[in-house]
Write a protein that binds this DNA or RNA. Structure first.
Lengths: 108, 108
DNA sequence: TGTATATACAACCAAATCGTTGTATAGTTG
DNA sequence: CAACTATACAACGATTTGGTTGTATATACA
């Protein structure tokens, strides 16, 4: 990685992080982890409103997190790749480490 | 990673992503990449207001992205670890791939 | 062709968030 | 002690954003 990230690149990176900063969108991505789903299936799976799911999907699609395939009346969405979960893994590692050190502090 | 991420964990993960979803905070982290800096130095480095820098630092500290050390009148902030840049690397990989496929589309 | 269904989209409101201004706190220095 | 400096914090206005409601579009089917 470059020594100093340009302001422009920083903005692009921030944009991606922002897409992942909403539990609703993470839930959608998580639901898509193992197979593709239609919008309706995502609505059912997540319990969110249809328009809401659709809006989140537009953002995830625009930023390349999901792929889209039209089949008849339905639109099938799928994960573009698994890198989202790499990111989550790094974050989870951080959370666990913090949790561990927090427990250690309390134990004293 | 677990097959299905719990809603609670999803919220924790989203919280971390949100901290990274602001260019100003990424810029602060980027400035801290190679050595620790005081708040004043960060203000100078980034051109942001002091109160603004301080507020962002509070969030980054609360979420464990930076460490804090008080020396006299100054408070020195440092990166807690380099994992932020792992995350940025994954994102940058995505951005480059998208850019590449975008160019390919236009070339046609 | 007419009806029904799946998805997208615009408009709206409420809540969250960014940056600023002003002030409080803590530590330093004369 | 008094003046000064670095940092944190509260409050405020402007902007953004998430979710909803209502509607438009497109495809299927009778």
């Amino acid at each position: 990685m470059a020594r100093k990230l340009s302001t422009g690149l920083l903005a692009l990176i921030a944009q991606r992080f922002k897409a992942l900063s909403e539990p609703a969108r993470l839930e959608i991505l998580s639901a898509l982890r193992h197979d593709e789903l239609t919008v309706s299936e995502l609505v059912e799976e997540t319990g969110m409103g249809q328009a809401n799911v659709s809006k989140h999907l537009q953002m995830l699609y625009a930023l390349g997190f999901v792929d889209r395939r039209k089949g008849g009346l339905f639109v099938h969405y799928a994960l573009a790749d698994q890198s989202v979960f790499e990111l989550c893994d790094v974050i989870c590692g951080r959370i666990e480490a913090q949790e561990k050190s927090r427990r250690k502090l309390i134990a004293r």
